[in-house]
Simulated assay, not measured.
Amino acid sequence: MTIWVDADACPVVVREILFRAARRTGEPLVLVANQSIATPSVPNISMLQVPQGYDAADDEIARRVVAGDLVITQDIPLAKEVIDKDALALSPRGELFTRANIVARLNMRDFLETMRSSGVHTGGPSALSQSDKQAFAKQLDKWLAKR
């Protein structure tokens, strides 16, 4: 099983948590982005650079993910594709996307996107908090423990 990271928008602190976990467990960790991202020189950690383009990293992850893999992403449509392939999707804030919550998350995303395109300022996400980091690390540890 592999941990895939939608790395273009993944916070550095979350990548560091992932690097430590991959070193500790030996789980394969692949960062996918359209720009080069430095990774530790560890055999099970790699960086896959994709061409520039809208959703290029998401599309590459969706092509490669298999059942049982874990994908770290904030992208709701990618999370839906991952779940449809019987893999797990986890946000950098520690929210586990599931079959039970992904449709509601997609609907909210689409609603907010419609609002923004109508000129309504919806604001962005808040900064990653300490509790977000802890929630992420806890969910990651749960997945790793099941391995």
Score class of each variant (00 low, 15 high):
T2E: 07
V5S: 00
A7D: 01
D8H: 03
D8T: 02
A9V: 05
A9M: 08
A9R: 06
V13A: 15
V14A: 09
V14Q: 02
R20W: 06
A21S: 13
A22R: 07
A22P: 06
R23Y: 10
G26S: 13
G26D: 12
G26N: 11
E27C: 14
E27A: 15
P28V: 10
V30L: 12
V30K: 14
V32T: 00
V32I: 00
S36F: 12
I37R: 03
A38S: 13
T39V: 14
T39F: 06
T39S: 11
P43S: 15
P43Y: 13
P43Q: 15
N44I: 00
N44Y: 04
M47R: 15
L48K: 11
V50P: 00
D55F: 05
A57G: 05
D59G: 00
D59H: 03
E60A: 13
E60W: 06
I61G: 04
A62Q: 05
V65I: 12
D69N: 14
V71T: 04
V71K: 01
I76E: 00
P77G: 02
A79G: 08
K80C: 12
V82M: 07
V82R: 11
I83M: 08
D84F: 01
D84N: 14
K85Q: 14
D86F: 01
A89E: 05
L90C: 05
L90S: 05
S91M: 02
P92I: 01
L96R: 15
T98D: 01
A104S: 13
R105Y: 01
N107P: 00
N107D: 10
N107R: 10
F111S: 07
F111D: 09
T114N: 09
M115R: 01
S117T: 11
S117N: 13
S118A: 14
S118Q: 13
G119F: 06
V120N: 02
V120A: 05
V120L: 13
T122A: 13
T122F: 04
T122L: 11
G124I: 03
L128I: 13
L128C: 06
Q130W: 06
D132P: 09
D132G: 10
Q134T: 12
Q134K: 14
Q139E: 15
Q139M: 09
D141M: 07
L144E: 06
L144P: 05
R147S: 11
